[in-house]
Design a protein around this nucleic acid. Sequence first.
DNA 1: CATATATTGTGAATTATTCAACAGATTTAG
DNA 2: CTAAATCTGTTGAATAATTCACAATATATG
Lengths: 209, 209
Amino acid sequence: MSNNSRNVPKATLQRYPVYLKALRQLKKQGLERILSDELSKHVQIKSTTIRRDLSFLGTLGKQGYGYSIEKLIDVFNEKLGTEFDEKIILIGAGNLGSALMHYNRWQYVVGEIACAFDVDPEKLVARYDVPVYPMSELEERIPKGCRIAILTASSDVQATVDRLAKCGIVGIVDFTHEHIRVPEGVKIKQVDVVSAIQELVFETNEMNI
Amino acid sequence: MSNNSRNVPKATLQRYPVYLKALRQLKKQGLERILSDELSKHVQIKSTTIRRDLSFLGTLGKQGYGYSIEKLIDVFNEKLGTEFDEKIILIGAGNLGSALMHYNRWQYVVGEIACAFDVDPEKLVARYDVPVYPMSELEERIPKGCRIAILTASSDVQATVDRLAKCGIVGIVDFTHEHIRVPEGVKIKQVDVVSAIQELVFETNEMNI
DNA sequence: CATATATTGTGAATTATTCAACAGATTTAG
DNA sequence: CTAAATCTGTTGAATAATTCACAATATATG
């Protein structure tokens, strides 16, 4: 009965990772089912919003019963591609890059970091089983079909982005503190402490405006 | 005095860091003024939206001329508190924490990391001039008036958050991969690779739903 | 098996955000 | 100095997102 591809609101898409994270935690705690009202308390999003968000993925809940946590997680995996066999590349193998290669080993599946690149010859050592190649070999070493890159290097950022786009990258997770313009068709997600802190400050200082 | 405060939309607040970042880059390039249409091309946000967003901060532009970049940056600093003398604390002094302490030295002013805390006795060495104290000394070592914490440690996350809230922290930048419930009055910003990648995947796979 | 109870899924109402259009301020050119 | 050109700030219309309210449907119970 579920509406085939109504277009999912952007705002909803941004909440899915929040649900997924909470659901995995609940599963780990041994829970098997959950009500939208309970989940609401966990993620601090209104239960109506949750139900509507989930309804885009199908008819997943049961009236009078709630949602099966296992089933929800499965649906996220299937429908939204979390189980995809995607190879992710990492640009920059410094402190931050190393931390990411380390996470790669124990975190929830989101694909895996296939390899890293760095301009510094001293950094070209595999860490946590992730090989690190010279930046100059990007075009030849990049895995076939690779779509997503994580950017932690901070030199020549704009040039690197353009180069990645040419290699077929369509999604970039950006850890740099630079302002970047992305080519048409490429999506970028900022993961930036400075911006995050600024947002916090802006919100907590708003009354002063 | 702040009663003329129209309330700034949440969406606008989230764009301010983007503008600020772009403006700083433009200033560095030697530019002195900019039109909303030009800025629009840089940040990839419609010029009308930009003008509206900026109008919440006052009458900053001049018809027929545009905006002074310097002035805009100043206003962000003054009105939104970027110049504040805030002390930020860091929880966790591992790879990621080290990267942040390093950034602390050369990045745009957003306050500074005053000190770090870690449970691991081996990590209690100052890095890049940031002292690292044992986690057990949080309550005594936390700087007076400290409001913002960066969370990179991944053990006992929820307990740590509750403890931070008791110490007066109202804003948390969260780098962990855990799902966290924050107490009333505390804001949290996720800075999470996994979620960022998921969002990218969700957006690029949306047609499959 | 029938009835009471609980909870989802969703139209309709509300609220928030974006965007187009334009009046009016400001600069620039002559 | 005056007129033409430019570009902001804002009004109001369009679009998007949230929330309400309740019918539909399941479970639980006696």
